[in-house]
Amino acid sequence: TQVHVDGVTYTFSNPEEAKKFADEMAKRKGGTWEIKDGHIHVE
């Protein structure tokens, strides 16, 4: 599962880990995350 944050791609083999990471990054940025085309995007 790929997580895209500010133009950087992080790859996780476990989708649950990817979601936890996205959640943390979104909180830090004061933003949100969503799943697009099977990838997670942090806004």
Rank of each mutant, 00 (worst) to 15 (best):
T1E: 03
T1I: 13
T1Q: 06
T1L: 10
Q2I: 13
Q2W: 12
Q2K: 13
Q2D: 09
Q2H: 13
V3G: 00
V3H: 00
V3M: 01
V3P: 00
V3I: 03
V3D: 00
V3C: 03
V3N: 00
V3K: 00
H4M: 07
H4T: 08
H4D: 05
H4Q: 05
H4V: 08
H4R: 06
H4F: 11
H4A: 04
H4P: 00
V5A: 07
V5T: 04
V5R: 01
V5H: 05
V5D: 04
V5P: 00
V5I: 09
V5N: 04
D6M: 06
D6R: 05
D6S: 07
G7R: 06
G7K: 06
G7I: 02
G7H: 07
G7M: 05
G7V: 02
G7E: 06
G7T: 05
V8L: 12
V8F: 12
V8P: 00
V8Y: 13
V8I: 12
V8E: 12
V8Q: 12
T9R: 08
T9Q: 08
T9W: 11
T9K: 08
T9D: 04
Y10G: 00
Y10P: 00
Y10R: 03
Y10E: 00
Y10C: 11
T11F: 14
T11I: 12
T11K: 08
T11C: 14
T11A: 08
T11M: 11
T11P: 05
T11S: 11
F12N: 00
F12L: 03
F12A: 00
F12P: 00
F12T: 00
F12K: 00
F12H: 00
F12Q: 00
F12I: 01
S13V: 10
S13L: 11
S13H: 09
S13N: 10
S13R: 08
S13K: 10
N14D: 14
N14V: 08
N14W: 07
N14H: 09
N14T: 11
N14P: 00
N14G: 08
P15R: 09
E16K: 07
E16V: 09
E16L: 09
E16Q: 09
E16W: 10
E16H: 09
E16N: 10
E16M: 10
E16F: 10
E17M: 10
E17H: 09
E17N: 08
E17F: 07
E17L: 10
E17V: 09
E17I: 08
A18W: 01
A18D: 00
A18N: 00
A18T: 01
A18Y: 01
A18Q: 00
A18E: 00
A18K: 00
K19I: 15
K19Q: 10
K19V: 14
K20M: 12
K20G: 08
K20Y: 09
K20W: 08
K20N: 11
F21K: 01
F21V: 02
F21S: 00
F21I: 01
A22C: 04
A22D: 01
A22H: 01
A22N: 01
A22F: 02
A22Q: 01
A22V: 02
D23C: 15
D23V: 12
D23W: 07
E24V: 09
E24Q: 08
E24I: 10
E24L: 11
E24H: 08
E24G: 05
M25V: 13
M25W: 12
M25Y: 09
M25I: 13
A26S: 06
A26K: 03
A26Q: 03
A26D: 02
A26I: 14
K27I: 12
K27T: 11
K27W: 12
K27V: 11
K27P: 03
K27Q: 13
K27G: 09
R28Q: 15
R28G: 11
R28P: 04
R28F: 14
R28W: 13
K29G: 13
K29E: 10
K29T: 15
K29F: 15
K29V: 15
K29A: 13
K29R: 11
G30A: 04
G30I: 02
G30C: 14
G30T: 03
G30V: 02
G30R: 05
G30F: 04
G31N: 03
G31C: 09
G31R: 03
G31P: 02
G31T: 08
G31I: 04
G31Q: 03
G31Y: 10
G31K: 03
T32R: 13
T32G: 07
T32K: 12
T32M: 09
T32W: 15
T32C: 14
W33D: 03
W33H: 03
W33T: 06
W33S: 04
W33V: 13
W33L: 09
W33P: 04
W33Q: 04
E34K: 10
E34L: 13
E34M: 11
E34H: 14
E34D: 07
E34C: 14
E34S: 09
E34T: 13
E34A: 09
E34F: 15
I35F: 12
I35L: 12
I35M: 13
I35T: 06
I35G: 04
I35Q: 07
K36N: 06
K36V: 13
K36L: 10
K36P: 04
K36Y: 09
K36C: 14
D37F: 05
D37V: 03
D37H: 05
D37Q: 05
D37G: 07
D37N: 09
D37S: 05
D37L: 04
D37M: 05
G38S: 04
G38H: 04
G38L: 04
G38P: 02
G38N: 07
G38E: 04
H39Y: 07
H39G: 07
H39I: 15
H39N: 08
H39M: 13
I40W: 04
I40P: 02
I40A: 02
I40K: 01
I40D: 02
I40H: 02
I40L: 06
H41T: 10
H41C: 14
H41E: 06
H41S: 07
V42D: 02
V42E: 02
V42Y: 04
V42W: 04
V42N: 02
V42A: 02
V42R: 02
V42K: 02
E43Y: 15
E43I: 15
E43Q: 14
E43P: 05
E43G: 12
